[in-house]
Amino acid sequence: MNTADRTRMGDGTPGERTVMLIHGMWSGPHVWENFRAYFEASGYRVLTPTLRHHDVAPGAPVNPALATTSLAHYADDLEAGIRALGVTPFIVGHSMGGLLAQMLAARGLARGAALLASAHCAPVFALDPMVAWFFRRAFLTPFWRRTQLPSYGTMRWGALNGLDEEEARRLYTTLIPESGRCLAEMAFWYLDPRRAAHVDARKVTCPLLFLTGSEDRLTPASIAWSTADYYGGKARIEFLRGRAHWLPSEPGWEEIAARVERFFRTETPLSRTRTGAAEAAPERFLPLPA
C-alpha cells in the first residue's frame, strides 16, 4: 500500500465506506484517477495500492524480480494491506486486478467486489482465439520467466480500442512491462503446480458484479460469462454495449462508476449473507447505456 493511501487512514471516514481499487497488467494506480475522484466525492475512503514492482516510471528499467513475480505475491501484499486497515473494504478490480479481487474475496477480505473486464480464475477454461492472437508474440518465447509488454499496435487492437487514437497513445506511454509468470499462471493454470490463479468459489461469500464490454478482445464476454457462472448465484454479469477493455478510462466511465457505487450501496448491505446475496440477485445480464 502506498504512502498516500496510508495517509488517508486518518480521515475519519467510516470503515464501511472504504473501497480498494486494484489495477491490472502493465498499469498502476493512475488508471483509477477518474474512479478515485468519483468515489471520494461520494464519501468513500479510497485506496489505490501499487502492485509489487510496479512503482517504476514508464520507460525506466523494471526490477528483474518482476519477471517471476506470482499472482500469489500480489494477493499476499494486498491481503496484508487490508488486514492493516482493520476493516473489510469493497473492492474494484480491472483486468488482472479483477482476478486478484476474486482471490481476496475467497480469503474473506471483500464486502463486495466489482470486476471490470476481469481476467478469469482457475478452474475456468478461457480458450479464445482473440486472446491467443493478443499474446501471440509472448507465447513464442519463454515468457514465463520474462517481463512482457505488447506492442502499441497489439494493445490498440485488443485493449485500448475503446479510446480515441490520441488518448490510446497517451495511455500506452504510461504502461510498464508485466510479470511473465503471472501471464503463465492465468493462461496455463492447469500446468501450474501451485495453482496460483485458483479460486475456490465455495469460499466466496460476498456478492460479485462482473461488467464486460461487447468490444473487449482481451477478456471477451464469453470469458466473463464462464467466470460469473462459476460463482453461481453469488455473481451477476452486466453487458456494456459498445465498451471495450480499458473501462476505467473509456468515455462513459462515469456511468460505470455510478453502477459500481450503486452495487456497493444497495446490493451489498452489511447484513447480507451468502444465502441472501444469492436470493437477492435479479436478472444477471443487463445492458448499460452505450
Results as ranks from 00 to 15, higher is better:
residue 108 G to L: 08
residue 108 G to H: 06
residue 110 A to M: 11
residue 111 R to K: 06
residue 111 R to V: 01
residue 111 R to D: 04
residue 111 R to F: 03
residue 112 G to C: 02
residue 113 A to Y: 06
residue 114 A to L: 11
residue 114 A to P: 15
residue 116 L to Q: 04
residue 117 A to G: 03
residue 118 S to N: 10
residue 119 A to F: 08
residue 120 H to Y: 02
residue 121 C to D: 13
residue 121 C to N: 14
residue 123 P to S: 09
residue 124 V to L: 08
residue 125 F to S: 14
residue 126 A to C: 13
residue 126 A to W: 11
residue 126 A to P: 13
residue 127 L to S: 04
residue 127 L to F: 02
residue 127 L to I: 03
residue 129 P to K: 09
residue 129 P to E: 15
residue 130 M to D: 01
residue 130 M to K: 15
residue 131 V to R: 02
residue 134 F to L: 10
residue 134 F to R: 04
residue 134 F to Q: 15
residue 134 F to I: 00
residue 135 F to R: 10
residue 136 R to G: 06
residue 136 R to Y: 03
residue 139 F to I: 01
residue 140 L to E: 07
residue 144 W to H: 11
residue 147 T to M: 00
residue 148 Q to N: 11
residue 149 L to E: 11
residue 151 S to M: 06
residue 151 S to F: 01
residue 153 G to D: 05
residue 155 M to C: 10
residue 156 R to L: 04
residue 156 R to Q: 12
residue 157 W to C: 02
residue 158 G to Y: 13
residue 161 N to Y: 14
residue 163 L to T: 01
residue 163 L to D: 04
residue 164 D to G: 10
residue 164 D to R: 13
residue 165 E to H: 05
residue 165 E to K: 07
residue 168 A to E: 10
residue 169 R to M: 00
residue 169 R to H: 02
residue 169 R to L: 00
residue 170 R to H: 05
residue 170 R to T: 14
residue 170 R to I: 15
residue 172 Y to I: 07
residue 173 T to I: 05
residue 173 T to A: 14
residue 175 L to I: 06
residue 177 P to Y: 01
residue 178 E to H: 12
residue 178 E to V: 14
residue 178 E to K: 11
residue 179 S to E: 03
residue 180 G to R: 05
residue 180 G to V: 07
residue 181 R to K: 08
residue 181 R to P: 02
residue 182 C to L: 04
residue 184 A to R: 09
residue 185 E to S: 06
residue 185 E to D: 07
residue 186 M to I: 13
residue 189 W to V: 01
residue 198 H to I: 03
residue 200 D to W: 15
residue 201 A to H: 00
residue 201 A to F: 00
residue 201 A to M: 05
residue 201 A to R: 13
residue 202 R to H: 09
residue 204 V to E: 10
residue 205 T to H: 05
residue 206 C to T: 09
residue 206 C to D: 01
residue 207 P to K: 11
residue 207 P to N: 02
residue 208 L to T: 12
residue 209 L to V: 14
residue 210 F to P: 15
residue 210 F to S: 00
residue 211 L to R: 13
residue 211 L to Q: 04
residue 213 G to N: 05
residue 214 S to Y: 08
residue 215 E to A: 07
residue 215 E to N: 15
residue 217 R to G: 11
residue 217 R to H: 14
residue 218 L to N: 13
residue 220 P to H: 11
residue 221 A to W: 03
